[in-house]
């Protein structure tokens, strides 16, 4: 199905382009040149700068920057945060997308708006909300203190803030996909006698696996890279509540450029890996679509 549509629009494009400025080589070159220049200035140059600064005093200084205990504990905290947030948001995202696209219920549009909330709220505000809720001067602060529970300025606060910010990624990726797929397959499955759970595992999940993976990757990238919200709730305690992005800022402010860019290069590497996995997924999707068409 999908490939048919793709081929159809491809034909439409060719048909539309033919009578226009048909391949004026100059216009084409200018357009390509502008795109390449812009990409170079906005994406590639900054990326190269990160690696250049990180490595310009040699690989030893680079490794020292990454293996230094404070950097290492920041890396661990970032991995831990992502390891908690990504699975939780994946489960939530699938559940929400399934509910929204396969069922009719009251308050559905409200639920969609709520899922979008973290996209529209500034991360700093998100962090402040948690301080107002759980901070010593906040609504729950006195109770938490009395029960010796520390949320803000500790790992739970960082996880909560990251959870909030990365909340929409999986759901937002799945909802349009599942809407396009409709409920036909599920209806067929149920009418053939499968239960709801089995229908989900055997019919819905295989249909959405690539979209789901894509959403998980984006969610993970943001969970590891989040700065604003985490900065507000972190407390910046070395070895304890500094995530990688926060550690980069601290190192930079302390004139430790090599170490700062070394840690930053790890985050950049993560982005590159994300990009590679995303490309691999897209080509896998295209391949499976071709197979389905044959």
């Amino acid at each position: 199905m999908a490939s048919v549509i793709a081929r159809g629009t491809g034909l439409a494009h060719q048909a539309a382009r033919a009578p226009g400025v048909a391949d004026s080589p100059l216009a084409r070159r200018i357009l390509i040149g502008v795109s390449v220049l812009f990409l170079g200035a906005m994406l590639i140059a900054p990326l190269l700068t990160v690696f250049g600064y990180a490595l310009y005093q040699g690989i030893d200084r680079y490794l020292a920057g990454i293996l230094e205990p404070a950097a290492w504990s920041a890396i661990q905290l970032t991995l831990l945060t992502a390891a908690i947030c990504v699975p939780l948001n994946t489960v939530f995202g699938v559940a929400a997308a399934w509910a929204i696209t396969k069922f009719e219920f009251r308050g559905k549009s409200l639920l969609i708006s709520l899922i979008d909330l973290p996209f529209s709220v500034s991360p700093v505000i998100a962090g402040l909300v948690f301080v107002i809720l759980f901070g010593a001067q906040g609504f729950l602060g006195p109770w938490l203190r009395a029960n010796d529970v520390q949320i803000i300025f500790a790992v739970p606060g960082i996880v909560l803030a990251t959870l909030f910010v990365t909340f929409p990624f999986v759901a937002r990726e799945l909802i349009p996909l599942m809407q396009a797929q409709g409920t036909g397959n599920e209806e067929a499955s149920v009418s053939l006698g499968a239960g709801g759970f089995r229908t989900f595992w055997r019919v819905t999940l295989p249909n959405i696996k690539w979209g789901l993976l894509y959403g998980v990757i984006l969610c993970n990238a943001r969970a590891m890279g989040e700065f604003g919200a985490v900065s507000v709730v972190s407390g910046h305690i070395r070895h304890q509540t500094n995530t990688m992005p926060l550690h980069v800022e601290i190192l930079y402010n302390e004139y430790q450029f090599v170490a700062a860019f070394a840690v930053a290069s790890l985050l950049a590497l993560l982005a590159l890996v994300t990009l590679a996995v995303k490309t691999a997924i897209e080509s896998a999707v295209a391949r499976s679509a071709r197979l389905a068409a044959h």
């Binding site: 759980f134 910046h236 305690i237």
Partner: peptide, 20 residues
């Protein structure tokens, strides 16, 4: 020792909000 560094005003704010 555990150390926390930041802008002086925002560090005070964090202690007020419960940084121990």
């Amino acid at each position: 020792f555990r150390m926390s560094h930041g802008g002086s005003g925002s560090q005070a704010r964090a202690v007020i909000d419960g940084l121990e």
